[in-house]
Design a binder for these strands. Structure first.
Lengths: 199, 199
DNA sequence: CATAAATTTGACTCTTGAGTCAAATTTATT
DNA sequence: AATAAATTTGACTCAAGAGTCAAATTTATG
């Protein structure tokens, strides 16, 4: 009986999906660094050693790629949110969550893009809904913290918008090849986040 | 002797400069809300009750407008930084500064745009230099605070990047017509900023 | 009113980059 | 090797939006 695991690299569908994913990640990097409209499909293709026409074998259009970039980020955040987080208080949970967020954003090629307005109405609504869901979960957690006494009073939404800003801004300045290591940033940010809202 | 002050509204040069400023502010709003490339000059003109061709009577090109939008924001921040800020400790000064920043961003039509990469090399370098100068001043202030004991230890740059993120993210969600008043946001953010870095 | 300066416009041009497609090439299968 | 399927390409089309310009219109001035 043939070993299916060894066959995987030769599995056509898997190959395709893997390449498609690589395309989207590469595009995401370009979008993050240069902005959606400044990153041309031709250049993105060239960076992958391909032609633009070849790119379009894996994707339908540029907007779809942007859309999927957003989804990948929110999928990753959902995954982190889903995981059971340790910590007695909501504040502890929030901190653990935040560490994971920063680590995810610095370690994986995934990033939180800001260019939502380059999406068509449909996709834009979708992405904003996803973001909203995540925000609401975090706001809920903050409110829990205000109940269990670990987080100080104040507009929970503002509490969240404040430290989520740091996360979004990360994409603008973080450079994986820089001297700051992802884990250090995560530790620092988590501390600062926590201090900012603890009671 | 004629009253010069009363003449001002009829002063040609002043009229021109005022209109030009209005054009740049309107464009800035559009850039903030839709992104630089999604905001067409034609639409910006239409919003002002003008034609695209008329816009170009006041400006040289679109990039120049983006450039000036950035400069306006950094000018405003420089102005705030220049003002002597009260407060015994560096932390107090920083807080006063931060309140002014938020108030400026919510009250004036000026905003911190993120689309630096849509600028040509020259202008981009200029804008990044301006941003760098401001960041360095704030980092310096944080270091002062670490010396005078008001701010806790840690990478001063990271301290700053964290709470400057909130400022940049503001542009993405703040809506002047929303229920949150600028001053309230300023007060909340200042508190959270301070708590995040005080020793 | 006549003249000149300032302002605005319609109708263009030009560039850039997204997206297409039939044909060529590579890779796998019998 | 022959065949078929998957992948890549060169050479295109097409649309959108920036920027121009001569002519029209408005505004101020003697």
């Amino acid at each position: 009986m043939t070993n299916l695991a060894l066959k995987e690299p030769f599995n056509r569908e898997k190959q395709f999906t893997a390449k498609r994913r690589a395309v989207i990640l590469a595009a995401g990097q370009a979008f993050r660094r240069q902005g959606y409209h400044n990153a041309s499909m031709t250049k993105i293709a060239a960076n992958l050693g391909l032609t633009k026409a070849a790119l379009y074998y894996y994707i339908h259009n540029k907007e779809e790629v942007l859309y999927e970039c957003h989804l990948m980020a929110y999928d990753a955040m959902d995954e982190i949110l889903k995981a059971k987080h340790d910590g007695a208080t909501a504040l502890d949970k929030l901190e653990a969550l935040y560490v994971d967020f920063v680590n995810m954003l610095t370690a994986s090629g995934v990033s939180l893009l800001t260019d939502v307005n380059s999406l068509g109405e449909e996709n834009k609504a979708d992405v904003l809904a996803r973001r909203g869901k995540i925000e609401r979960k975090i706001i809920r957690l903050v409110k829990d913290g205000q109940k269990d006494g670990s987080i100080r009073a104040g507009d929970a939404r503002l509490h969240v918008f404040f430290f989520m800003g740091a996360l979004n801004w990360l994409n603008a300045w973080y450079d994986a090849s820089g001297r700051l290591k992802g884990e250090d940033i995560a530790a620092h940010f988590a501390l600062q986040m926590r201090a900012g809202i603890r009671s």
